[in-house]
């Protein structure tokens, strides 16, 4: 079976620093994969190479067998990739509804239409409101995003990534900066995602990471040191050494 995401001997260097060094990972469709590792392990760099923010120095990224290594982000999205950002990245000047409209239209040819207002498309606003209801933001639809709390922005960001119905969803530290109760809420939203969405996630909160993951990839100094189930990771001595030992 073709992997949803296959990373093939991927390396990314910034000047002399090899942030990611010959990493190979295969993630089958529907799997929930969490990337962990200490600071500077290369998680975010690897993540950004998959998402398209960075182009790899060498190696390839395949999505369902298509080489996407050099593909711009917007085309990856059209192929079925969705992502969130480590630092909340939403259009703060726009309302919640407008943000989600943009997300729905992003993979739709109608985004080029200039002669008709968004309100005039039958069903469009309803579809967007339904998406907002899923993350519990329906009653805040008309508020500018800048009035939302950080936790709510995180929820919104997830809604944005989901509204193009991605086959592969990349989450970069979705729980970063959230209070324990907000974490719990986000954890529930993520666990409730349909199982056919392949999930790749960076997460520092080790309890959440192990609870969500089908498999865990542990990175250290830009290399994969372990690729296994949450149980294997917890019991592995080397992982304890480089990761848990420093927490």
């Amino acid at each position: 079976m073709t992997a949803a995401i296959q990373v093939d001997r991927l390396a990314k260097a910034f000047g002399g620093l090899r942030a990611v060094d010959e990493v190979s990972i295969a993630i089958p469709p529907g799997e929930r994969r969490v990337l962990i590792g200490p600071n500077g392990a290369g998680k975010t760099t690897l993540f950004n190479c998959i998402a398209g923010t960075h182009r790899p120095t060498s190696g390839r990224v395949l999505m369902f067998g298509t080489d996407i290594s050099q593909m711009p982000e917007n085309r990856r999205t059209a192929l079925g990739m969705g992502r969130t950002f480590q630092i909340s990245n939403v259009c703060t000047d726009l309302t919640v509804l407008e943000n989600l409209l943009l997300a729905v239209l992003g993979t739709d040819r109608r985004k080029w239409i200039v002669y008709r207002s968004t309100g005039a498309f039958p069903g469009l606003h309803d579809r967007v409101l339904a998406g907002l209801a899923k993350v519990g933001l329906a009653d805040r639809a008309d508020e500018p995003v800048k009035f939302l709390s950080y936790g709510e922005r995180r929820q919104l960001e997830l809604a944005l990534a989901l509204s193009s119905h991605p086959k592969v969803l990349l989450l970069d530290e979705p729980c970063a900066g959230l209070s324990p109760s907000e974490r719990q809420k986000l954890f529930q939203t993520v666990s409730a995602l349909p199982r056919d969405i392949t999930l790749i996630m960076i997460e520092h909160d080790i309890d959440i990471a192990l609870a969500l993951a089908d498999r865990v990839t542990v990175l250290h100094h830009g290399r994969v040191i372990l690729d296994g189930t949450p149980d294997e990771v917890q019991s592995n001595a080397q992982v304890r050494e480089v990761y848990f030992g420093h927490v």
């Binding site: 711009p72 982000e73 917007n74 059209a78 969705g82 943009l102 997300a103 992003g106 944005l160 193009s164």
Partner: peptide, 8 residues
Amino acid sequence: TRMRSLGY
């Protein structure tokens, strides 16, 4: 950056 990742 957000717009790019939404497919624009």
